[in-house]
Simulated assay, not measured.
Amino acid sequence: MKNLIAVEEALALVLKNVKTTTETELISLDKAIGHVLAKDLYAPISLPPFRQSAMDGYALNYHHGNNFLVIGEVKAGDASRQILSKGQAVRIFTGAQVPKSANTVIKQELISKHGKSISVAGVIRLGSNIRPEGEQIQKNTLALNKGVILNASTIGFIAALGLVEIPVYKKPSVVIIVTGNELARGGQALKDGQIYESNAIMLKNALRSLGILSVDVLEVKDNYQETQLVLNSTLNQYDFTLVSGGISVGDYDFVGRALDKLGIEQVFYKVKQKPGQPLYFGRRNNL
Rank of each mutant, 00 (worst) to 15 (best):
L37R: 03
N67H: 14
R51N: 07
K274F: 12
K39N: 07
V255M: 00
Q82V: 13
G156P: 10
A32K: 00
L229V: 15
G245Q: 00
G57D: 04
L110T: 12
A152W: 14
I83K: 08
M55S: 15
E197Q: 07
Y224T: 04
T22G: 05
A10V: 10
D216H: 08
A10F: 03
R131G: 05
Y252I: 11
Y58R: 00
L229E: 14
L47D: 05
Y62L: 15
L183W: 10
S46F: 00
V243D: 13
L231P: 06
H35R: 06
D30M: 10
E73Y: 14
G276R: 04
T227R: 02
D260K: 08
Q138L: 10
F157L: 01
I118W: 00
I195F: 12
N223T: 02
Q225R: 15
L183Y: 11
G193R: 05
P99R: 09
V74D: 02
I195Y: 13
N223V: 06
T241K: 09
Y269F: 10
N232K: 11
D78V: 02
K204T: 10
V123R: 13
L279N: 10
V18P: 09
A102P: 00
L207I: 00
R81Y: 12
L231M: 02
Y269D: 10
V255H: 03
P132H: 01
H64S: 15
I155N: 01
I118H: 03
L144H: 02
L218Y: 15
Y42T: 06
N140G: 12
I124E: 03
G122Q: 05
H63E: 14
V164W: 11
S112I: 15
S248F: 09
G87P: 06
Q188L: 12
R91H: 13
T241S: 07
A32C: 06
D260W: 12
A121W: 13
K19V: 13
S28M: 14
G134H: 05
V249I: 14
D239M: 03
L47G: 01
D78F: 02
V74P: 03
I166K: 05
Q136G: 11
Q88V: 01
V36C: 08
N17G: 06
G180W: 09
K139T: 08
D40L: 02
G180M: 05
K75P: 11
L110Y: 15
H64G: 13
L150N: 06
V249W: 15
D239Q: 03
E219L: 13
A206P: 11
Q138D: 12
Y169A: 01
L203P: 01
R284V: 08
L37K: 02
V175L: 11
I176A: 01
V123A: 14
L13G: 08
D40C: 07
V105R: 05
G282T: 00
P99V: 03
Q237M: 15
V90C: 03
L262H: 07
N236G: 02
K139L: 12
Q273S: 10
L37Q: 03
V90Y: 04
E23Q: 09
A38Y: 01
R91V: 09
G65L: 05
M202Q: 12
K16I: 11
